[in-house]
Design a protein around this nucleic acid. Structure first.
Lengths: 232, 232
DNA sequence: TTTAGTTTAATTGTCGACAATAAAATTGAT
DNA sequence: ATCAATTTTATTGTCGACAATTAAACTAAA
């Protein structure tokens, strides 16, 4: 999957050379996957031992985990992993709709032909790999996220890229992964993606914006129903 | 001025109990004011001595300064204060338009009558204090920012509040302060503010959104002309 | 004189220990 | 037995020193 490649950029990620980066990477993965339970308290000494680092780089990592809304820190009290809720999901997706809509509008004018072509190719290979393994659509997940990443990059707006990819998307992934969002929306999402690409290729930013908002709203609806289906 | 009060909230600010918070506060002020020059390199040992703290809380502060886009860090290389540019201003204000537009739409449905009344009062006292001291409109600056803060808070969306107030607004203030944005747009801004409040009071989110976008676009135009007027 | 390579110096990243604060446990009183 | 106050424990925040990396200075060769 190419998701990993798409994630690499700017402040939060750089290349995991430093040990703070490494431990950040691992904890992010653990929280998103639910290995560190949502709502659980975080013990600095414990995590430091667990990932075999001192508290200094660990705290650096915690600072950045707070930045991408995966934990909440209160001074002199400690950190907690965030909890997933309907209200939180709605607040998150309100922003996402708005910012990714903007990303589409900007991408429609700022992406060059080559980038658009690459986006098309991504969608194609995405389609074939999905047809091959119909049930196991973790790859679909990754492919979908990759699609969104590309468009966000295509906006060429550094602040927008930073906010969406570094600060919001981990939480989005956390909702999707922990609620088992892998199922039936696959083929419909393909069509929506295709339509968005066409709009961008036609340099119709307004339309791409509108389609992206609908696409995200639909995605939110899905997660929302799953959320209240599982209580809370 | 009430700006200080409006700033206090959520992750970045809490109450400056810890020394990392204190030094963050001071450095933010220094960078926004230009006391630490834009584009200059940051020396951790030097700043640590200057603000009389160890490097540990200083680095905590640097992490949060990166978060609000006032410095840029590269691993093993150090930190630089950001530089102001037309491209950066445009990218920043693209986001601002979008998010504050959203804030207006949300505020139109989420602010209660009391909050709207307070907003009206703010504008009035803002008007009188401006008529008193026509030339020195630093207070106007603060008043304007306060106006925007209130609406953002009125959206009741925690992510939106965090992004705008904690991550974007320091940079906005940096542009305004360092380019001496205090002058002639005062009375026009009043009318625009008034119109936005009316739209919100009428629960007309669409209109408030539109007006806010125009208001911010006008503000950007002002700063933009000043920027290229001073070279670069 | 310029450029490449090497050495030196300075800066950043990390560590372990201590201080200050908050949570937990214990004690005492009603 | 319950609640309040106090002691104890544990956790977070801070410090100074060391290790690793990078940038600067210097030397030497073309």
């Amino acid at each position: 999957m190419t998701t990993e490649a798409a994630i690499i950029h700017s402040p939060i990620w750089r290349s995991p050379i430093t040990s703070a980066d490494r431990v950040l990477h691992e904890i992010q993965r653990a929280i998103v996957a639910g290995d560190i339970a949502a709502g659980s308290k975080i013990s600095e000494p414990e995590l430091a031992r667990r990932f075999d680092v001192s508290r200094a780089p660990l705290r650096e990592a915690l600072a950045r985990l707070e930045r991408c809304h995966l934990i909440e820190r209160t001074p002199n009290a400690g950190s907690r992993v965030v909890t997933l809720s309907t209200a939180g999901l709605q607040a998150l997706y309100q922003i996402r709709e708005e910012l990714e809509g903007l990303a589409c509008r900007l991408a429609a004018t700022n992406m060059d032909e080559h980038e658009i072509e690459q986006l098309r190719q991504l969608l194609d290979q995405h389609l074939t790999s999905q047809r091959v393994r119909e049930g196991e659509s973790y790859y679909q997940e990754a492919g979908d996220l990759d699609f969104h990443y590309r468009i966000i990059m295509g906006s060429k707006n550094p602040y927008l890229i930073n906010m969406l990819c570094d600060e919001l998307y981990f939480l989005v992934r956390m909702y999707r992964v922990q609620l088992g969002m892998n199922g039936p929306r696959v083929s419909r999402a393909f069509d929506e993606h295709k339509a968005i690409i066409n709009a961008i290729a036609n340099r119709d930013g307004e339309l791409a914006d509108l389609l992206m908002r609908r696409h995200i709203a639909a995605s939110r609806g899905n997660i929302e129903s799953k959320l209240q289906q599982l209580g809370k």
